[in-house]
Design a protein around this nucleic acid. Structure first.
Lengths: 205, 205
DNA sequence: GTCTATACCTCGATAGAC
DNA sequence: GTCTATCGAGGTATAGAC
């Protein structure tokens, strides 16, 4: 049987990531065994160690690649030259779109932080903090431009992110509200929370 | 040594709950062993089974008593005869006050849901739903009274709860903001989100 | 009520054959 | 790259002595 060298390896590697993500999201890192993951991939447990040095690295890779993808998506969506109102709208839409599309990875990213080693935890936290800083910069800009009226910038930023991420706890594909409606609803809530007048349109100072 | 019969048992029972809560909050249900809990309590592992039939019941009891306390606190704080604005303020303050005072129990209540058996999960979910319904009733009332302008009631309720509960992820005793300041900040955010005019005071229609 | 001892199971990780 | 076999550790829960 002719088979491209390495092609089987790539299949197993991606299956490993996919099944590990699925199982850990459902049962938790500590509750999922390497044997379970191997069974889901369709190999014996020893074979997994050709792809990951240990279980911890597997978890870290899942979280790190998720955060890297999020940061990259925001870097592409943001326009630092735009008004704060406009940037805030982009942030809200990107956050919802990105997170609702990957519920399992999002779930892992806040549920499994405590199962990281201290070094790995610090790396993930730095990326998360960088993402949060993107939002607080927008809030600071909005206050300077006079379009937003809110109190403590850090608290407001954390509140907005918590509110948006919370959508993942109840959103289900094919539910009562579609993603476009959800984006609009959350956008209205966020704009009200930071004191943007109800009549103001994004993009105007 | 004269000792009140049963007093030693009560001490162990409460120590068991306290240490189990602390350890599970820190490491997760699946990662904490009955041996670890026993060591923290100061007994051997066999002794724990005089207080709980198994590990699962221990987890369920911790979550159920937390939710019961929350529902009782809200029943006492709420005034169904008041205006929606006033009731919303009470809800925000109670939620923050209650949750910031019990970070470990709050953490368990959303992190360990998946480690409950289906039956136990359904019981906890019913209590959580009942709490959420308290808020959505307020939002519906506010819309009817004309003091609030928001969209989907269920989405708005979930968004508010997620925003408020998020405070637990960053709040630390003795931090930059005290609890009174935090309550005020979140109250402003919530009132803005549901479209209560910035000038309006709670208690006014 | 708590102890010691233990039954029985599953874990992560490795070794060596193919 | 994957298999089988295995090591040493640690898991929940129970039995029976005190």
């Amino acid at each position: 049987m002719a088979r491209t060298p390495g092609s089987r390896a790539e299949t197993t590697a991606s299956a490993l990531r996919r099944e590990a993500l699925r199982l850990i999201a459902r049962h938790g890192y500590a509750a999922v065994s390497m044997r379970q993951i191997a069974a889901a991939v369709g190999v014996q447990v020893g074979a997994l160690y050709a792809y990951t040095p240990d279980k911890q690295s597997l978890l870290y890779d899942l979280l790190a690649s998720h955060m890297q993808a999020l940061l990259a998506a925001w870097a592409e969506a943001d326009d630092p030259a735009a008004t704060a109102d406009d940037r805030l709208e982009r942030f809200v839409r990107l956050h919802l779109r990105f997170n609702l599309a990957r519920p399992e990875a999002v779930f892992l990213s806040y549920m499994e932080l405590r199962n990281l080693t201290p070094d790995n935890f610090a790396r993930i936290e730095a990326m998360r903090r960088s993402y949060e800083d993107g939002l607080t910069a927008i809030l600071t800009q909005g206050q300077a431009e006079g379009s937003m009226r809110h109190g403590d910038v850090r608290l407001t930023g954390m509140a907005i992110i918590a509110m948006l991420t919370g959508a993942n706890t109840w959103y289900r594909e094919g539910g009562r509200l579609d993603r476009a409606q959800i984006e609009q609803e959350y956008l209205t809530l966020v704009r009200g929370a930071v004191g943007i007048p109800a009549g103001a349109l994004a993009g105007q100072a």
